[in-house]
Design a protein around this nucleic acid. Structure first.
Lengths: 290, 290
DNA sequence: TAGCGCTCGTGCATAAAAGCATACATGGAT
DNA sequence: ATCCATGTATGCTTTTATGCACGAGCGCTA
């Protein structure tokens, strides 16, 4: 009759991931435990919840019904955790922030350094990823994002305006200077394989030579002289061996925002982090514009 | 960071009941365990949840916030359990029904007997109480109630119409027959201490002699000759030693209903029970009317 | 066909949780 | 003051849950 709530959560994860191993990883427990909890739940409810197939556990109708409601429970849990974080005045405990890895590597390290020294009791975790983590699920407490619109359900503050321009290594830059009409090789993003539209008419011959899915790899290729690439100013300037070339005149790019869920936003920990962050951004804003 | 759902439930119960022992009883666990779970949750959330006072645990703001959301989780759990019960086609597992104890003792036993013999794998539990159990929380799966309106959020079927009349033991009845004008002593309900309005004019002298809070005690008193009492026909007839007296002519009383939550109502188990129940009611309906 | 990667099931050792008995504190009634 | 009811705290023992290691089955691929 009575069913343990942790078992409901386990069933939810098993329905979501389809295998004991997947659910176990999500719950950070051993998959054997998942199997045992499922069996216990089946006994408690006197109902088969999963068909055991060679390629995984297939949920029955009853399991789907449970998962649906366990999801509501999960939402309530997330709401609770966010509000708890939001009303917390303690400068201790964990704090997760996420930002694109290039921003962390080339710009945010001093902020992280200063914050962790100022608040040693806060266990700060950095999630360097370009994925948009779900702040509602508290996958991160705060996100620093390069975006034209920071999301309507989130609270946000614009930290920096930034420009992009074209960059290449010295050798390539010199070749272009000597003969602006020669063919210019571009390194482009797989997701935006077209050449920039605003290329200056002084450089009439351009072609996309290589496509990349990763900006760090792309910078490496540019440093090796494989071609010209479009980069945010701060990144081009921070990449040794690259110099700005006049092929693509500087132009505005997506701004840099710090965003968070409104429930979490008022937390003292986040206030403290934002204070250091905005101070640093103001002091360094010149690095981002032409 | 990660918090066990069972601990959230424990916090909810502790906030509700105010003491370790109360929460423990509600969860059917030892109170020591409650204390440990609370401490574990406090460590996981890095936040004080209860002030330990000599007269119990007093919840902090954070604990109230948790309890609020844990209540949402509890509602989701109840929804789930009801739907699971409602879609179940198994004729096994537990089944809880509730009914007033006088109805069980004097009328429903044959139904219970037949049902438990027909479905031996169903673990039937009888909750004999006049309290209105919460069918939404699945305190019972099905309720048999004596009521003028069976509740708007519940599904229900009227089983029986019934009349009430006045009853007394043979001695008192004889006295009244011999001299209708003599003073008649009434046994009344504490909650309705007034005499019935419809007393026949042939019996002009009536007074409320004693008030009772329990119908069984009242019947005992009537059997002992302490006075006349109003009773549903079936109860008066079923009580040995009591005979109907003409002081109060038979009149319609609240009907007998079987009600259930709409989620649970379609369950095979409940269908099976209702089938036996309605059959028995039809066969015995004459016992309830004058 | 052999090897690899994925899945699940089972037995065993161990760590974690729960229960029990006891001690202690407090407030109210006698 | 004393006793009792009601509350919590703690040490000890037992029970339960968990993780680990190993084995088996299945499908894919070299």
């Amino acid at each position: 009759m009575d069913i343990a709530w942790d078992d409901l959560r386990t069933i939810l994860m098993l329905v979501r991931h389809g295998s004991l191993a997947g659910a176990a990883e999500a719950l950070n427990i051993n998959y054997t435990t998942v199997a045992r909890r499922v069996r216990r739940a089946e006994e408690a409810l006197d109902q088969l919840l999963f068909e055991r197939l060679p390629d995984g556990y297939r949920p029955t109708e009853a399991a789907h019904l449970i998962a649906e409601n366990a999801e509501r429970m999960e939402n309530a849990e997330h709401d609770m955790l966010r509000r708890l974080q939001g009303t917390s005045t303690e400068l201790s405990g964990s704090l997760k922030i996420t930002a694109p890895h290039v921003l962390i590597a080339n710009f945010l390290s001093p902020v992280i350094d200063e914050f962790s020294k100022a608040h040693p009791r806060i266990d700060l975790r950095i999630l360097a990823t370009t994925e948009l983590l779900d702040l509602t699920r508290l996958e991160a407490d705060l996100a620093i994002r390069i975006s034209r619109n920071p999301g309507d359900t989130l609270t946000g503050v614009r930290l920096l305006k930034q420009d992009t321009a074209s960059f290449a290594n010295r050798e390539v830059a010199e070749r272009i200077r000597v003969d602006p009409t020669a063919m210019i090789d571009w390194l482009v993003y797989e997701s935006h394989p077209n050449l920039p539209k605003a290329i200056s008419p002084e450089f009439p011959n351009n072609r996309a030579r290589l496509q990349f899915d990763d900006v760090v790899a792309m910078i490496g290729a540019a440093q090796a002289g494989l071609g010209v690439m479009r980069l945010p100013m701060f990144l081009g300037r921070a990449s040794t061996g690259l110099v700005q070339v006049p092929v693509l005149p500087p132009q505005p790019y997506a701004d840099i925002w710090v965003v968070g869920h409104p429930d979490v936003w008022p937390s003292q920990k986040l206030r403290a982090l934002r204070a250091i962050l905005t101070k640093h951004c103001k002091a360094q804003s010149h690095r981002f514009v032409a």
